[in-house]
Design a protein around this nucleic acid. Structure first.
Lengths: 173, 173
DNA sequence: ATCATAGAGTTAGATTTCGAAGTATTCCAC
DNA sequence: GTGGAATACTTCGAAATCTAACTCTATGAT
């Protein structure tokens, strides 16, 4: 080993071929691509909503809660767990969101008289007004976030996402 | 208005038909569905990676950085901005991630001698070892997170996500 | 009746993220 | 070259999230 580089190989060189093997197997790569894209879209979607609703001082998370509650046609209120599930966040995160919204008078919390373990959440009058205002003033209808996709593609996208989630949930059990 | 309810209508009733209109227009609903699903998948993907890599004390975010750096075949190092972009996080978030990884000795930061504004990041020897270990020991190859989807579907999913992101980015300008 | 178990929600503490302001370096017009 | 914009990254403080532990109510077995 005379005239060649006698310096020890750079950190990467030693491991590179193992990694090459890993990459060649490709198992991770397609996942990684999806993962990156999913995070990116999640982030940007939030940003878009935030900007759209900034005037009214409503965050994307709060909007998710409000529009969920607005669709509670039976008007019996939704529980925090249902809301957390619908929004795909941990229950404790929903507690915090609701705290803030209660404080701002957008929603009200009351314990279910029929089962005192449960809490029910409803939009207040103020909450309804703000929701309506948001719909009217914030271009929530006209300006189309996902304009790059046709309706058919959106449905396809949602389906694929939901299937992937289902598969991941199944793994947990 | 005699024998009917004379109590003032409940908060919801007053606004419900406006909302019905909004929902009927449907503009928001398909977006909302995608949004929820995207968040859900992002969350669960992170959880899966976290659990998978918990033994080695690597977070999903750190894994993203490591596997990105591992693919830096030219071994010249990647800049924080490139990494942030690849991982779809804000630059400041990447700074923090790298801080921690440097502290743990997984990566090293050095200023690019050719352009002293730039910083270059590379895996250290330790970093490479840990990455290799993760591949070998953590089932990163065999256990397939997205098993619910065929390869073809994954590609489709990634495409749709990327198109949606592209559209959103275009909106910003 | 009573005690153990399970379920819903909250609290607590740590982590992660973000946006905005700040610092240092380079590029460019003149 | 000199002053001013532009670029790359970091620092700072605030906000949102997570997991794990805790409280309170309900259920069910004995």
């Amino acid at each position: 080993m005379g005239s060649r580089k006698t310096t020890k190989p750079s950190a990467g060189e030693t491991y590179r071929k193992d990694v090459a093997l890993f990459v060649a197997a490709g198992g991770d790569e397609s996942v990684q691509r999806v993962m990156t894209a999913v995070h990116g879209l999640a982030r940007r979607l939030n940003q878009w909503y935030d900007r759209q609703l900034a005037d009214l001082d409503i965050s994307a998370g709060e909007w998710a809660v409000m529009s969920q509650l607005a669709r509670d046609v039976e008007a019996r209120g939704l529980t925090p767990s249902v809301l957390a599930d619908a929004a795909n966040v941990a229950p404790s995160s929903m507690t915090h969101r609701l705290d803030r919204m209660v404080q701002r008078g957008l929603v009200e919390r009351f314990t279910d008289p029929e089962n005192r373990v449960r809490v029910r959440v409803m939009l207040t009058d103020t909450g309804w007004q703000l929701f309506k205002l948001a719909i009217q003033e914030s271009d929530m209808l006209e300006s189309d976030v996902l304009r790059a996709l046709t309706v058919r593609e959106r449905v396809k996208l949602a389906e694929l996402l939901e299937r992937a989630i289902g598969g991941l949930d199944a793994l947990d059990r």
